[in-house]
Every structure is written in C-alpha cells, then in structure tokens.
Design a protein around this nucleic acid. Structure first.
Lengths: 167, 167
DNA sequence: CTCAGTGCAAAGGATTTGCATGCCG
DNA sequence: CGGCATGCAAATCCTTTGCACTGAG
C-alpha cells in the first residue's frame, strides 16, 4: 500500500492545503475524543475525512456518495456521537435530510445561506459589529423569557445561483 | 362563580379579547384563501383556531392534544396547504417534530428562542436597528455567493426557564 | 351538482436500533 | 482480554398518500 490515496495528477494539483487541514482536524478530534474517553476509530477517521472534503455542510447521502463503502448506520451513529461530544453540528433547516458540519472548535463562527429550492447551504461570516449587535439583542430577549442563552444562528433563505438561473 | 356552565352563544361574546383576535385572523385567512380560490372549511377553521390558541409555534402533537378529534392527516394536509398559500410557516429547527406558526401577514416579523432541551420555542422581536444591520450583512453576503435573498431568520438556542431549573 | 376536503388506514422515507462479530485500548 | 464500535437488517417514527365518502360553493 502506498502512503497516500490516489488523487489527481501531482503536477496539476499537489493539494498540500487539504492534507495539512485534514491532519490538523484529525489532531483536534483525536485530542477532544481522548479527553472524553472516546475512541477515535478508523470509521470515525473516515467520516472526519469526508467532512473535511466537503467545504459545505453535507447531508448523509452526500457523505455516502463520497464513500459508499461506509454503512449508513455507522455514519448516523458516528455523526450522532460526534454531535454529542460537541465536534459536529447538525443542521435541520433546509431540506429533507439533516446536514452536518464541524462545530465551532473546528470551524470559525459563521452563519448560513440556505437555498429554499435545492437545499444547498453556504457558510458566511459577518463583521464583528453585526455579531455583537445580534448577541446583545438576543441576550436581552433571553432575559425577558428566562432563557439561558447558549448560541445563536442566523440563516438567509433564498435561491442559490444555480436555482435562480433555472427560473 | 356561576352554577350553570355556559356554552358559547352566537349572539353574545363573553371572551372579548381572544374572540376578537380569533375573528380578525379568521377574516384575514378567509380573504386570503378566497383570493386563491381555496375553500375555508370547518376543518381549516378549527386548525386556525388552534393556532390562535397557542401563543407559540406549535408541533402537531400539541395541536392534536388541543383537539384530539381532528385526524392527523387532516392537520398535516391543511398545515401543508396553509404553508403553500403563505399563511403558515413551518419551523424545522428545534426538535423531532416540525412546528407551525402564522406567517408574516398574520404575525409581525420576529425570531425565536429555542430550548435545546425540550424544544419549546418562544417568539421575540428585535429593535429595527438590529434587523437592519442583519439585513445589510446578509444582503452583502448573498451578493458574494450569487444568492437571491428572500428572508432571514435568527434563532437563539439555550435552555428555557423550566429546563434550566431542572439542572 | 361537482369537485375539493375529509377520515381512515396503509405506505413512504429518513433515521435509529438489536444482535452477532471485530477491533481499539 | 473486555468492552465499545461495526455491519447488516429489521424496526421506528414522523409525515405523506390512496381511496371512498362528505360537504362547500
């Protein structure tokens, strides 16, 4: 076995960034799971690899398409476990399938553009001033209702460029 | 306390506030459906009544509990129909069941406090300045990705007062 | 009178789980 | 080695749908 999986032509695309990013994520995940006495098995590694590969929140069918050799039940079980340990976030908005992305220790604070037509989700980041304004407003509102705030999320629903072009 | 329980009388109106609100909503719904050549049947009236009764976004089991005599399928079908006509909004965030609330013609623009523990959702409104700041940021972000923006939503996840007390 | 709405039950589809086996620590 | 993770398949649960009947317009 070679040390690296076959990919595109090394002359055209050495892709050093992806590898570095992937390794860094694996380190973070391994450490986090070790702290919680959870195993970092090969199946979980493969799942993390898939999540690194998709730059967007991914649905289970999308993950399966990237690596059909992983059983659905293992994907669901491990996504669930990673969610419970706080490494992965499950997005229920935006279509028939849930979508999964890295949670904030692994991915910077951001929000989502959601296509109401095809369910595609893009990550976006806002200026600190906007985040602060929203946080202040939310904190105040939470107090009024006795809520203990944890985190906020902002979605923009609309049509992605592909779907907008089709109409 | 009166010794004789009173049923609702078509001529009298012993509960002015609720009835007034309910009547206003019924009028709006009826008009809206008439414009779209949709019938405002007794089943749909009962559903609207339930939605008026719950001050919060309600899940289907909650609606069923309020009036167990309505078949689930009718609730789902009418909620779906009301959603397609733009009178009702379906919230997929916040639990195993979808939740339903009146859409913006019938309910002022607002956002949600979501209990991560029990799924309860409260409506909250923000100052115009916050809404404007968010809209500006979202509009800019949408341009970057070729999104055609429709509307935004902001959620605050946390623990509601009941669930916070239980820990 | 006609066609959409209703109720019942059964189907559909995403997600979860039981159980025997394999692998991590 | 012991216990948790895995794979397969079957189960579960929310939601949707087919069909015959009722009611609104």
């Amino acid at each position: 076995m070679s040390t690296t999986p076959r990919r595109q032509d090394p002359d055209m695309d050495p892709a050093p960034r992806i590898s570095a990013r992937s390794a860094a994520v694996h380190d973070r995940v391994q450490e986090h799971l070790a702290d919680l006495d959870q195993r970092y098995t090969s199946g979980r590694r493969r799942l993390i690899e898939l999540l690194v590969a998709t730059s967007r929140p991914a649905s289970l069918p999308e993950l399966l398409e990237l690596d059909p050799s992983i059983p659905q039940s293992s994907l669901y079980r491990n996504l669930d476990m990673l969610e419970r340990t706080g490494l992965v976030r499950r997005l229920t908005t935006g279509g028939e399938h849930a979508r999964f992305e890295f949670a904030e220790p692994l991915l910077a604070h951001h929000h989502h553009l959601i296509c109401v037509s095809c369910g595609l989700i893009e990550d976006v980041t806002f200026a600190d001033a906007v985040e602060t304004a929203v946080d202040d407003a939310l904190h105040e509102a939470a107090l009024d209702y006795g809520f203990e705030p944890l985190h906020h999320s902002i979605d923009l629903h609309g049509h992605c460029s592909d779907c907008a072009a089709q109409n």
